[in-house]
Amino acid sequence: MFDLVAQSVFSGLLAGAYYALIALGLALVFGTMRIINLAHGELVLLAGYIAYTAESRFGLDPLAALPAAIIIVALTSVIIYLLLTRIRVDREINSLILTFGIAIMLTNGILMIWSADIRSTTSGWYLDSIIIGDTLFAMNTEILFAVIGVLVVGAVWWWLSKSWYGRALRAVSSNRDAAKLMGIDPRTTEILSFAVAGLLASIAGIALYSGKVIEPSLGHSLTIKAFIITVLAGLGSVPGVLIGAVLIGVAESLTATLWSSALQGLVSMLLFLIVLLVMPSGLFGRTRRRG
């Protein structure tokens, strides 16, 4: 029993680091522009399919598809931003609806190009398992992307808090007009944050493809997962994303082990609603009003 729980927590931790990769792009855009990009999950999925094409058509390793995925996904992300700037009224709600529409387009675009079949990697190394300390079991891909996930969270956190661009981005998000007076062009920084969100989605997409199965309708649930983690983290907290993601990962994994795998989704939804309704600023966020 103890071994089972330990294994479950371990798998949950690994899943959490991977979830953080999925959520980070959405959290970044949400934190800096207060826009929820409902097409974020589809961007992740798009990168996954690019990795699939690279592997099945050109015989490349999924990771080798990263440059191509970054170019295509970041470009798509920036196009989404440019469309968002065309919204004139009711920005909050209309940006939600616009990105929702784009999500439907991407899902169906993927369906047309790659068909509804389920795809997964054929590269054996990723799915091979290793055993750590005689008892804990994991797939190579889980370990690899958990490490990448932690590193990427660290890099984004450093980038936002220490680099010049990160500061400019924060300046724009706290006061657009003041930032303009300081000579910062809000558009440039916002395009950059969408491009970086695209980059993050690309890494997440490769992780998704090399460890799970992909199908065109998956994007929606990826977006929801990313949003749940963002809410758990609280607005503007990068380390919070990792902790929120790990929390979800472990909670899901324990639910599956101790109860039933069908109830995994229920647990993360309940966690989401409880945090949303009871802890208005998330677990680690700055104080703000949602009511």
Partner: peptide, 28 residues
């Protein structure tokens, strides 16, 4: 009804969470 306290996008997605919960309950 507790979601009525939430603003725009939070309300929208909290309702989505409820829909998902009901779907899972209907299965379970």
């Amino acid at each position: 009804m507790p979601t009525l306290r939430l603003r725009g996008p939070y309300f929208a997605l909290a309702m989505l969470a409820f829909a998902e919960i009901f779907r899972i309950l209907a299965i379970e």
